[in-house]
């Protein structure tokens, strides 16, 4: 029995959203709480700290900005992938999904260059509280990017076999919502760490 088939066809009382969509929204609600907590902790620690470096003096703002554009672009490509999926254009879907994945890898590549530079300069999470916050927050975000890469590549490889599954588009939409969330978290991280 396909789990989500029940939701689509279920004859009883329901919310009007598919299970996948409702599920992903609830999941995102918990993710919001996770990152909200981290941002609050960042604020509390920063406000209570006697000294705090200016982000742009210790971090590479151009690389951070490029990464922001990379992620925003990938948010656009995943929407296009979803649009192609709705338009039943398999080749188009695969192209845009692959592009999204490629951009995600570019993001991680730039991120690792940034981290590498920091490590070579002997800046580690233990160096001071600022770098602790920087590495932990960007690291957790990078983990979310990796999660998104796994999710999106599964969809890309599932496309041939499950293209005609009525639930496929719903899954692409859920993946898109998640990817947007990852993007939004970065948009908060950039000013918090690099610019303020």
């Amino acid at each position: 029995m396909s789990s989500s088939a029940v939701a689509v066809n279920y004859p009883g009382e329901h919310s009007g959203l598919t299970n996948a969509k409702l599920g992903i929204w609830l999941f995102l609600a918990s993710e919001v709480m996770l990152f909200a907590t981290l941002f609050t902790s960042y604020l509390v620690i920063r406000l209570g700290s006697s000294s705090w470096p200016r982000g742009w003096e210790v971090l590479n703002v151009p690389l951070g900005t490029i990464n922001t554009f990379v992620l925003i672009t990938s948010s656009v490509t995943i929407i296009l992938a979803y649009a192609k999926c709705m338009a039943r254009d398999k080749a188009g879907f695969k192209t845009y999904m692959a592009l999204t994945l490629a951009l995600a890898f570019v993001f991680l590549g730039i991120k690792s260059v940034e981290w590498g530079t920091k490590f070579r300069a002997h800046h580690f999470p233990s160096t001071n509280i600022f770098f602790g916050v920087y590495f932990v927050l960007t690291g957790l975000h990078a983990l979310h990017v990796i999660g998104g890469i796994i999710l999106n590549s599964v969809l890309l490889f599932m496309a041939d076999k499950h293209w005609d599954d009525p639930l496929f588009a719903g899954r692409v939409e859920a993946a898109g919502l998640y990817w947007h969330f990852v993007d939004i978290v970065w948009i908060f991280l950039l000013p918090a760490l690099y610019l303020l």
């Binding site: 609600a29 996770l34 907590t37 902790s41 509280i129 602790g132 932990v136």
Partner: peptide
């Protein structure tokens, strides 16, 4: 559970970082 557990997850991650990465959150 959905809304209250993530803060503890975040808090635990920070404590884990304190222990493993030697940060000082």
């Amino acid at each position: 559970l959905l809304l209250a557990f993530p803060p503890l997850e975040a808090a635990s991650i920070l404590q884990l970082a304190d222990r493993v990465l030697h940060t000082s959150f």
